[in-house]
Design a protein around this nucleic acid. Sequence first.
DNA 1: CGGATTCTTGAGGCTCCTCAACGCCAGTGG
DNA 2: CCACTGGCGTTGAGGAGCCTCAAGAATCCG
Lengths: 195, 195
Amino acid sequence: MKPGAYLYFEGDDVEWLYQVSSGVLRLTRLLANGRRQVIAFGYPGDIVGFAADGLHHTDCEALTDVCLHPIRRSHLESGDGDPALHLALLKAALCEISAMQDHFMMLGRKSATEKLASFLCVLSERVGQDLGPNRQINLPMCRSDIADFLGLTTETISRTFTQLRKSRIIEIDNIYTIIIQRPTALLRLSEGAND
Amino acid sequence: MKPGAYLYFEGDDVEWLYQVSSGVLRLTRLLANGRRQVIAFGYPGDIVGFAADGLHHTDCEALTDVCLHPIRRSHLESGDGDPALHLALLKAALCEISAMQDHFMMLGRKSATEKLASFLCVLSERVGQDLGPNRQINLPMCRSDIADFLGLTTETISRTFTQLRKSRIIEIDNIYTIIIQRPTALLRLSEGAND
DNA sequence: CGGATTCTTGAGGCTCCTCAACGCCAGTGG
DNA sequence: CCACTGGCGTTGAGGAGCCTCAAGAATCCG
């Protein structure tokens, strides 16, 4: 898939699940008045397309070139064909629930700085690369995607990035490439330290 | 189970899942600095205790007298014993994911009034009772539980209840019993109408 | 009835949003 | 090659919404 291509839309029938092999997906949901929530980003290893009633409840768009491994929906619903795959899908669904519970905490009870710091910490953990003594993250999503993921505005995201940069916790190489200079400080911020 | 009793704590091993037969459970998660997020309320029919890694990630407390139907964890992980039960558990997990996605929208992108209106609409739908021309909801949880569910403070919940009462959309029979006088207005508020 | 707890209400402040202007960059066409 | 354009990111000023702190009212319970 190419950047900007949609894998499915809200309301589509679920025929397949997809495991991301490479690239990044974005799952979004829209409210009537145009407000948007980014539900999740799909990174390599993630499985997207879970739905209880046979209909997708999010839109799914590729943010980068994406390679996918399609999985027939029936493998989720019964282990007849491939018990190991069935179990793996189940585990993935349960992991999804855990991850979403973390996200609740983030959306409901964290400040803008804590949210962005948490976001960067999670990304650093999952897809960060070592860069000398520091750690580098590539952000395939734009500022408004981050904003809609964290329940903030693009302006607040931008201001918070600037603030982290000015306190020498991160460096912004270009808008899509963040270098974490003080990982411990970032982690402390994400947990609610305000100094 | 009696009100105030805990079914399990965060960090406990998952040995059983539980389907709620009657009563209401509250699932909460704590942040280091004492902030709390109510992840979900468990109403009759709901299944609680899903966890990917064999450990509970929330505390679970009874808000009322609760009757539970325990389900061995192995039934979730394999359909060997009872395929129908296995499938039902899977469906429940997928429903959980859908419900959590709705909740994201709520936490991230709705105002206090919209949050409370949405909350009341969902409860009215699920467990409301007809009362003459109106509809009545019983709230087994206290104001701070609602606040921590919606990502607000108890004061804001209280003020928003008062505001809904003054605009004759709801009536507060006692603090645990809400009568919805204008369900359509409530629904419109929950969707972002501001008049 | 007294004490504790929860809920409500008010005043003031802070965080984040809104609105607006500007800079940067890539793409386009003259 | 450069002016023009549109999209995205940044920055600033001002304001709205919700939080914090505090006190009083209602409710619960022994």
